[in-house]
Nucleic acid binder design. Structure first.
Lengths: 156, 156
DNA sequence: GAATTCACAGATAATGATTATCAATAAATA
DNA sequence: TATTTATTGATAATCATTATCTGTGAATTC
């Protein structure tokens, strides 16, 4: 018996394809592809390390001296709106973003250095064991939340 | 085949028992049971609605006019330190706390009104369906994170 | 092609939850 | 009872993120 999260059955795309997908989605929603946005998209499309907004900015400001944190945040929010980025919320550290796999999926999070990586996808029972084996992490805790609308809010 | 999260196999306790457990744990760690702390513990031990720090404060200030938000936050952090409270981190809204079941477990979170409730515990495959049936929520997303130490951080 | 919207960038200020600081006070100990 | 120590609660500080606003450049219209 193999349990698979339905929304994880997505194909993984190359950075080039992902970039193109994001651009198409923006165009479809009548947003402009500015040089600044293009730069942010490029970083997100190829990032494997779930960067924070600040980290994205740092990577860009070298090549684009005019880049500002505001623009990074605005682009992130734009992508959130059209569902092309996954946001991992934290309160004790900055939020982290996955532009590569913008759908819910498990994560391995180091509580010390903040490293976040995508473990291989397996059924849940074996997931913990396999994740330890394949990532070398020690697992001390996990977080599993389902998001949606409660009965009261569905009517509104 | 039934998949159960190991850390969910805990017994559920009455508010009175939970209060006593928290007090014992604090005593064991040589922290004082002050009237203010006792009041916060009492709210947390019986709360089923995953309150925020502010909400706890609001509930207490009526009976304890001298109560301050600082004290609530400090008590929460104390309980975090000794593992007697579960913190649900958010960046877009206040963190929420479970003093009743201070171990990782799934949650149903309404993205509109912020309601958080504990769904019945089932194996993962049937969890989504059963949760929809039993909670009346519509599920639009989920979050599954494993926390631990990455190989680099284990040595340090 | 010129005029005129309009979206956007980026600087700056504002927000808000949480933490840090510190003086006053209460509790524990000697 | 004196003295040390922890705790409270008011206040200020922090910091990621958002809001605001002005200048600018692109797109559209005439």
């Amino acid at each position: 018996m193999s349990i698979v999260f339905p929304d994880m059955k997505k194909t993984e795309f190359s950075p080039e394809i992902r970039l193109e997908q994001m651009i198409e989605k923006l165009k479809k929603n009548e947003f402009r592809i500015t040089p600044q946005r293009y730069a942010v998209l490029k970083v997100l499309a190829r990032s494997e390390n779930h960067p924070s907004a600040e980290r994205i900015y740092e990577q860009l400001v070298a090549d684009y001296p005019t880049m500002s944190p505001s623009t990074v945040y605005k682009t992130i929010n734009l992508l959130k709106k059209i569902g092309e980025i996954l946001e991992l919320e934290f309160s004790e550290m900055s939020n982290r973003y996955d532009g590569n796999r913008p759908y819910p999926h498990p994560h391995m999070i180091c509580t010390k250095c903040g490293t976040i990586l995508d473990p291989p996808l397996l059924d849940f029972e074996k997931l913990k064991i396999k994740m330890i084996e394949e990532t070398g992490f020690t697992i001390t805790s996990h977080r599993l939340d389902f998001f949606g609308l409660c009965p009261d809010c569905q009517g509104k």
